[in-house]
Write a protein that binds this DNA or RNA. Structure first.
Length: 661
RNA sequence: GCCGCCUUAGCUCAGUCGGCAGAGCGAUUCACUCGUAAUGAAUAGGUCUGGGGUUCGAUUCCCCAAGGCGGCUCCA
């Protein structure tokens, strides 16, 4: 007699036969690839117990996608070891939009190798191999995997420390019970197997042809620079071929928006080799963009009560000892210049100099909050391998401010700063944010990096956390991500195609005021130490410009466009008429250009389109006769015969309101 | 900094199994003056990233350096 058990399936109580598997429950829906049993993801082959709560997980659910990609990583590893039996396995977790697998091989993978691997993977997938879970003891696993030194190392780390051992290592040995997943062919023979926590999709068939091997690179074993480098192969996998194609299209769109490419096309900036790596120069059009950004940000700061200051690019080293930066960041600062018996450093941060301004005379509590702000040029010796366009440079301009406040004023000031930075970002067209709270972490490798007492850190962190919570935005913890002198909130902004960028930062610092001996005289006549709050709104002007170029794909809103209005005469005869129209606009501060080349009209239209100028004004006989112009917009739409005064008013209004057209 | 790949005209890229280098776009000039994404023709433009080596001969092969790209590590 077969006993029955009661399970809860997607919230409904059901009585089923003993030994029923999750697969039995969801057999009629092929999109269900894994199950969540009592909150844990399980293979569909998992045998249910009385009282289990079972939820179906679809292939296109976030969890389902992770499982799909992790299974695809196994197929990749099987393919690699089929082609090269000497390859040793590292780890192979799912990542955003795909997966990777690390291998120890004597020669790195070539692009041809990757194509070959893709073919081998397709054959494995077509075989319809099933993923079969098998529990093993630690001892048996060590024997079976004696040829896989990295796996053996992970077995030694299994349990609580595995997640810390390496990002992604948890997918191999995350649980208390070690398991091996065997890939079994239809004839029952074992094709391959891998130490793995699982779960997996039931069969490789589900991968179809919706996967791709994308690239390879080196990666340090367990993410540590001190360890051996392995060769990492990246891939992507999706529920359907259409999903894969859409993903590849997204990548292509990101490539089209690449600010390095658009910077050349739009003649905004360049990176001359002669200057050195990571040192951009801004061409006239990029210069306009940069100046518009700075002018606007400077004005908004002043409106919000900041005082604009200026400080030099270099300083004697003592200053950076006082601040505490030099011991921590000496290797990321440019080496010093010796002059008149002193060592001078290019500054990598502005706060020490602002502290000197604060300290230049006695301060009263009546002056607080005292908010100092500048576009400070800083230089950081970024490692050669990390330099990237405008987003990671060695010379940059920070829109940096320091608010000096009483401890009681700190929460309100932080709130003020957060609202201020969010409003600034919105003005530039970014309006989708979340926050990150970077804190001290004494358990990890960064232990010892932080100065100040635990109580001070706890208090500062709590203040930031409270303000962040009050904002209503999502808050993501970032343990260990704080600077040495205090915790920080950072604002992450999503751009037009969904990528996130770290923008503004707000840091609570109780250390530097002490190190600099900053004080103010309180109402009772006593001397008190202020708290300083660091804040960068865009992080760096360069980086933010890069983000804006990609966010707008080079098609800036009129107020930021290097050229706002481009005149295109239908024929040479109408150039004079257009010139008059344009000079009228220029007199009102509009940035105008006239296409006086001897190109034919269609070519001028093409050039105008490629330049991404927001307003193209066209004039021919019809327009001139009517005292009008014709608009052509970036989307190709047009409005003909608009009276000149009306056109001018529309253009000026769009610029003034900072709207996109 | 580490690993891999790459560096040819202003830009995008061919090419040379080692024998004094090509295209398109762009630029300049001439003709054309045209109503919504490329008119035609001509001309100029390159110590083939730099330095060493091998060779009768190196842009091509080898070594080193610089710069770029993709990752890793890092990012006050």
């Amino acid at each position: 007699m077969s006993a029955s058990i009661t399970v809860s399936v997607a919230g409904n109580e059901r009585s089923v036969a003993e030994a029923t598997t999750a697969a039995d429950l969801f057999a009629d829906d092929r999109a269900i690839v894994v199950a969540r049993v009592n909150g844990e993801l399980r293979d569909l082959a998992h045998v249910l117990a009385d009282g289990d709560a079972v939820e179906p997980v679809r292939i296109d659910d976030p969890d389902g996608l992770q499982v799909l990609r992790h299974s695809c990583a196994h197929v990749l590893a099987q393919a690699v070891q089929q082609v090269n039996p000497d390859a040793k396995l590292g780890i192979g977790p799912p990542i955003r939009d795909g997966f990777y697998y690390d291998f120890d091989v004597t020669t790195p993978f070539t692009p041809e190798d990757l194509k070959e691997l893709e073919k081998v993977m397709q054959r494995i997938i077509n075989e319809g191999q099933t993923f079969v879970r098998r529990e093993v003891s630690d001892e048996d696993a060590l024997v079976e995997l004696a040829g896989e030194p990295f796996k053996c190392e992970l077995i030694g780390l299994k349990g609580g420390s595995a997640e810390d051992a390496a990002e992604g290592a948890g997918v191999e040995v995350g649980g208390a019970q070690l398991t091996i997943y065997d890939n079994v062919r239809r004839d029952g023979t074992r094709a391959w197997g891998d130490l793995c926590r699982g779960p997996h999709i039931p069969t490789t068939k589900l991968l179809g042809n919706a996967f791709k091997v994308t690239r390879s690179s080196a990666a340090y074993w367990r993410g540590d620079q001190a360890n051996q480098q392995l060769q990492r192969v990246y891939g992507t996998a999706w529920p359907t071929k259409a999903d894969l194609t859409a993903y590849l299209d997204r990548l292509a769109e990101a490539e089209r928006r690449d600010h390095r490419k658009l910077g050349i096309e739009l003649d905004l900036y360049s990176f001359p080799d002669e200057l050195g790596s990571g040192l951009p120069v801004f061409h006239p059009k990029g210069g306009v963009l940069k100046r518009e950004m700075e002018d606007y940000v400077r004005r908004r700061h002043i409106e919000e009560g900041f005082l604009y200051v200026g400080t030099p690019h270099i300083s004697k080293e003592g200053l950076f000892h006082t601040s505490g930066h030099l011991p921590y960041y000496a290797d990321t600062m440019f080496p010093p210049m010796s002059m008149e018996g002193s060592d001078y450093y290019l500054k990598a941060m502005n706060c020490p100099m602002h502290n000197l301004i604060y300290r230049s005379r006695g301060r009263s509590y009546r002056e607080l909050p005292l908010r100092l702000f500048e576009f400070g040029s800083v230089y950081r010796y970024e490692k050669s391998g990390v330099i990237h366009g405008l987003t990671r440079v060695r010379g940059l301009e920070m829109d940096d401010s320091h608010s000096y406040v009483t401890p009681e004023q700190a929460p309100a000031e932080i709130k003020h700063l957060l609202n201020f930075v969010l409003s600034l970002l919105r003005d530039f067209g970014l309006d989708d944010f979340y926050l990150e709270l970077s804190t001290r972490d004494d358990s990890g490798a960064k232990k010892g990096k932080f100065i100040g007492s635990e109580e001070q850190w706890a208090e500062a962190t709590q203040i930031l956390a409270d303000v962040a919570a009050e904002s209503g935005l999502d808050l993501v913890p970032d343990p260990g991500g704080a600077a040495f002198y205090g915790p920080k909130i950072s604002v992450q902004a999503r751009d037009a195609i969904g990528r996130t960028w770290q923008m503004s930062t707000i840091q609570y610092d109780f250390n530097q005021p002490e190190r600099f001996g900053l004080e103010y005289q309180a109402a009772d006549g006593s001397r008190q130490q202020p708290v300083m709050i660091h804040s960068a709104k865009f992080g760096s002007i360069e980086r933010f410009m890069g983000v804006l170029v990609e966010h707008y794909a080079g098609a800036f809103p009129p107020w930021l466009s290097p050229v706002q209005v481009l005149g295109v005469p239908v024929a040479e005869e109408y150039a004079g008429y257009l010139r008059e129209v344009l000079s009228g606009l220029a007199a009102q501060g509009v940035r105008v250009e006239l296409d006086e080349s001897d190109d034919r009209f269609p070519k001028k239209i093409r050039n105008a389109s490629k330049s991404k100028v927001p307003f193209v004004l066209i004039a021919g006989e019809d327009d001139r006769a009517a005292g009008a112009v014709s608009f052509r917009f970036r989307d190709g739409s047009q409005r003909n015969g608009i009276p000149v005064a009306e056109a001018a008013a529309e253009i000026l209004a769009a610029i003034a309101s900072r709207t996109q057209v």
